[in-house]
């Protein structure tokens, strides 16, 4: 059997801090998208969403305390998604 007892117990406090950060980010993204930023609205909203999802993945989903290969796998899936969306848009942007 694998060596036990080395698993990390995340203190409650960490989750509370992350929740507060997520709520602040949520309200900031609501605030920033209600101002007229024109085309930057989409970018602003997405940046906030990416930061929030990073926090959820890292702390709530425990990736920070997981082994490296699990993090690499998750990163790979997001990279794959990014590549697919970029290629799709390259197609649409360069259509004549």
């Amino acid at each position: 059997m694998s060596e036990e007892k080395h698993q990390h117990v995340v203190p409650y406090r960490v989750y509370v801090i992350i929740l507060i950060a997520l709520l602040i980010l949520t309200f900031s993204s609501v605030g920033i998208t209600s101002i007229e930023l024109g085309e930057y609205t989409v970018a602003a909203a997405l940046i906030f969403a990416v930061i929030k999802s990073f926090l959820v993945l890292t702390y709530f989903m425990h990736l920070k305390y997981d082994k490296l290969y699990i993090r690499v796998m998750v990163g790979f899936v997001f990279a794959l998604f990014l590549v697919v969306i970029i290629i799709t848009f390259l197609d649409y942007l360069f259509r004549t």
Binding site: S29, T41, A49, K52, V56
Partner: peptide, 11 residues
């Protein structure tokens, strides 16, 4: 987290 801004926030 992604559905919310895409549907509710971006106008």
């Amino acid at each position: 987290i992604f559905l919310f801004p895409l549907f509710y926030l971006i106008h």
